[in-house]
Design a protein around this nucleic acid. Structure first.
Lengths: 233, 233
DNA sequence: ATAGTTCGTTGCACATAACTACTAAGACTT
DNA sequence: AAGTCTTAGTAGTTATGTGCAACGAACTAT
């Protein structure tokens, strides 16, 4: 801090940016990482696909996380865990509706194979788009292609660092399901024994005792994430 | 996106947050990672130490990065490279001067052992504080203790991922200097041969040919960072 | 029973890292 | 000029982690 010249008029002295929340909601569709897109009804970029988002409401939101949760709820009529802040972007040409646009971007995860979220208020049409199709080809409104790319990268880095995408899975899952999910996120295959060894060594999971599951053939042990001890801070 | 109900009055329809930039400027002081603090002259938190920062000026700043660069320039009378966005934090109780405060936090690096930056406009007093002393003990204004902790963590993660803190070093440096810098950031010793092998394997550096340097005893080869090929995106 | 499929584990070759020890090069002392 | 002090830089050895392949276990279907 350190600005102190002006008494208490600071908040009204300067015009403030038009501040929004954007959400990169990811899931797996047929084993491919996909993001949720919403079709824009109005200008700018009318008719184009874009990330769902909404204006920051300082009268409603107690924090940025709450704002993101509210946007998801209003737009998609769902509650989603695993919200994670990705980045903030801003500039004078970001949004034609205002002289200076600022967006705080969040990433969220949705259970793989879940149905399309209900279109909430002010949503025209929703659609899952594989991130691959966005990387090369389909162009989104604003800089949303870049944001999706950043979200995808962040997601992969997380998985590589054993910050597993539990949000894509039900609370209880088999190791094979977990592995397939990670493979889908990363975009390449993983070795079974190495994968399991890593999980074991790091105590990331704990078995859900007694329970098993299997449509056919040998049933698999179910696991759940172990409460991660981030310990001190 | 997807809000479209209102024509073009969006930017004036909702009150916007009081948006600031905060800077966690880090350097090494006597081999310890330290952050720059500025003493607050006015309320809130008058007399307390806090991170330097400033209001986002939508009339001056072409982007958040530019805003951070401007804040550093104005407050500290220096230009600094290696600006990196850390996170955004916001909420109604963040800043008593406004109903809702939003801060975009940047991390910057300053050459180790450099003198205290000149106090720029509206700065009372500056001081380097070892991050260790902040982790347990000294309490800063706002949530700045948390921000420093996050910056420190991010810094350590970067170094572990071989994203080396070049900003703390001059353009040309010896491998020993680099290693000592990394050790100071991480807070523990590193093995010399492993460290060098890693650097070599990853082609992170290139020797500055001919040049060497040494106050006494055997001179060491100087190196500089090799332009990192982030290639496609 | 037997075949078929998935689960889960083990053994081993290989790569990568940490740890120890060594040689090399210059400065200073005598 | 020789010795030694200190730091630079390199091996070589041991531990650890990963990738690959194979195997027995568990269950279904026929």
């Amino acid at each position: 801090m350190a600005d102190a010249a002006s008494p208490k008029t600071d908040s009204s002295k300067y015009p403030m940016p038009f501040t929004r929340i954007e959400v990169v909601l990811m899931t797996l569709v047929d084993g491919n990482l996909a993001v949720l897109l919403a079709r824009r009804a109005q200008a700018p970029y009318a008719g184009k696909w874009a990330l769902p988002g909404g204006v920051l409401r300082i009268d409603l939101d107690g924090s940025l996380e709450e704002a993101a949760a509210r946007v998801v709820r209003e737009r998609l009529a769902t509650d989603l865990p695993d919200l994670k802040q990705l980045c903030a972007v801003g500039g004078p040409t970001r949004d034609p509706r205002a002289p200076w646009g600022l967006s705080i971007v969040y990433r969220a995860l949705s259970l793989s194979g879940s149905t399309l979220p209900t279109a909430g208020k002010r949503i025209e049409e929703l659609r899952w788009a594989p991130v691959e199709s966005l990387a090369k080809g389909i162009s989104l409104a604003f800089d949303h292609n870049t944001l999706v790319a950043r979200a995808t990268d962040a997601m992969r880095e997380d998985v590589e660092e054993h910050d597993l995408p539990y949000g894509l899975l039900p609370a209880h899952f088999t190791l094979t399901e977990l592995q397939q999910t990670c493979e889908a996120v990363l975009g390449h295959a993983l070795d079974k024994s190495s994968f399991r060894r890593r999980l074991n060594d790091r105590d990331l999971l704990e078995p859900v005792d007694g329970e098993k599951r299997g449509g056919a053939f040998r049933p698999a042990q179910l696991y759940q994430r172990r409460a991660r001890l981030r310990s001190l801070r």
